[in-house]
Design a protein around this nucleic acid. Sequence first.
DNA 1: ACAATTATGTAGCGACTGCTACAAGAAAAA
DNA 2: TTTTTCTTGTAGCAGTCGCTACATAATTGT
Lengths: 166, 166
Amino acid sequence: MLSALAAHVLENGLNTASLRPMASAAGTSDRMLIYHFGSKDALIAELLEHLAAQMAVGLDAALPSTPFESDRALVLQVVQLMRSDPFRPYSRVWLDIISASAQGQSAHLEAGGKIIDTFLAWLAARHPDGEARAAVLLTLIEGILVMDGVGRSDIADAAIEALPGA
Amino acid sequence: MLSALAAHVLENGLNTASLRPMASAAGTSDRMLIYHFGSKDALIAELLEHLAAQMAVGLDAALPSTPFESDRALVLQVVQLMRSDPFRPYSRVWLDIISASAQGQSAHLEAGGKIIDTFLAWLAARHPDGEARAAVLLTLIEGILVMDGVGRSDIADAAIEALPGA
DNA sequence: ACAATTATGTAGCGACTGCTACAAGAAAAA
DNA sequence: TTTTTCTTGTAGCAGTCGCTACATAATTGT
């Protein structure tokens, strides 16, 4: 159920999702969605948790958990992953979560914070210097996501190129 | 007219804005908005241009156009500016533009690209090494905006602290 | 003064929003 | 078997969405 909803949201966007299209994507009715989740807000909250978990699993599966040789190598791998077909929908939904968070929607803010924390730990495990440097790289990666989102991947690439590394 | 619309959007969000509330914020009717702009999409397109110009003026007025001493000093100034009360609404709307761009809305994509280009030139004028390094710092600043948006300003601060500088 | 254009209010259309009242079938418990 | 609980479909409510038809007023051009 949640997986079908997640698939629909990954394809069509989170902030513009409404009950009836989601329901038909999941093979039910809006009536049933409210029955199961209580309200749309509750549905979104559960969906955010599901998406976060799904993304965490995907990240773990995609890259080895051994430290990379350099900042640049690590960031390059991560960015290539985020730009790949299977992960691009997650990037788009992630930007939806961020914008809703910044508007003060608490469920998105909470989920967004957790996703960042997970990502930070994931990065730290793959960087020789651990968490301190990972914070920098994570911030840069988020910036790269923004650049990609507005069609300025060249600037993002320049930022990667400037990193210390092989 | 556009200024009143911009003020409403800065206060209430861009992607959730609808004609009737915008109209009443501007002292007119939805009827008149369509009459003047032709359609909501056209209105949004003009509004995006207005917001971009407004933001560029604000940036120019806020910080001196002489180069800063270090990466860290420059980024710190810019981030403090973005976090200040008058600019926070712009940051929120900016995140709205990014998420809409990533969903493929062409007006937002176009406006977003222009805003980035403006910002890059603005930064380059304030950095001793010019555009090459400015690309890196701009990417990082966008990441910091994301961190702030999801309530992880501590990570953003760590990233600033790691920059070379006084 | 008359005609043509521009501006504005009123009312409403059809589609969509989240959600609910009501009823009925399905399943489980007694 | 009967009763209670769980699940589902049908229909619809009140509200909002972008937008438009129609009429009227104000302005402008000749």
